[in-house]
């Protein structure tokens, strides 16, 4: 009877029945995949003393800030992974994850532009490497892929097995 919903109708593509059936599962797959990536990244950055060194290698922050980032970045990645897995504030978590990936890409590009030869420290490691051993292209491509996963979730946050649903979001 009430047709007020028409004002919030999803874009045309979302209305094809097939997309409506498939999209939630794609989003779920992205959530799990991106969470797995984040957990791997966080765990491989342990112990934090090495993570600090990886941050310092970018030569972008003063020592105290680099230390803080080295300690908290893996924890932040872990927190985002938990939120993606349980599906809490899915759209916003995914958007923040995407922004984080963009920040990583900016960091890598800046290291590249300044002629540093470092490991990105994305999955542990980090620090100085031989100039011929840098893998900036690969690291950037990888981060673009992860950013795309995040963007997909942010655009289509509706998915099964998400806490958001009982809380009334993205049903």
């Amino acid at each position: 009877m009430d047709t007020a919903d028409a004002t919030t109708a999803p874009p045309a593509r979302d209305r094809t029945p097939r997309w409506r059936a498939v999209q939630p599962w794609l989003t779920l797959a992205c959530r799990v995949g991106l969470a797995a990536v984040l957990i791997t990244a966080a765990v491989s950055k342990y112990p934090p003393a090495l993570s600090v060194q990886a941050v310092e290698a970018y030569d972008l922050f003063p020592a105290d800030l680099a230390r803080l980032i080295g300690y908290t970045l893996p924890l932040f990645e872990l927190a985002l992974a938990v939120l993606l897995l349980v599906g809490l504030a899915t759209r916003y978590t995914a958007a923040v994850t995407t922004l984080l990936m963009v920040a990583f890409i900016v960091g890598i590009v800046s290291a590249m532009a300044r002629g540093l030869s470092i490991d990105c420290g994305c999955f542990g490691g980090g620090g100085q490497v031989d100039p011929e051993e840098t893998t900036y292209g690969l690291s950037i491509a990888r981060d673009i892929g992860f950013a795309a996963l995040g963007a997909f979730i942010a655009i289509w946050p509706r998915s099964p097995f998400a806490l958001d649903r009982p809380l009334g979001l993205f049903r």
Binding site: F76, L80, L83, L88, Y92
Partner: peptide, 10 residues
């Protein structure tokens, strides 16, 4: 509310 809860988790 949900964003607040997520922020709390972080």
């Amino acid at each position: 509310g949900v964003i607040g809860a997520a922020l709390g988790v972080v």
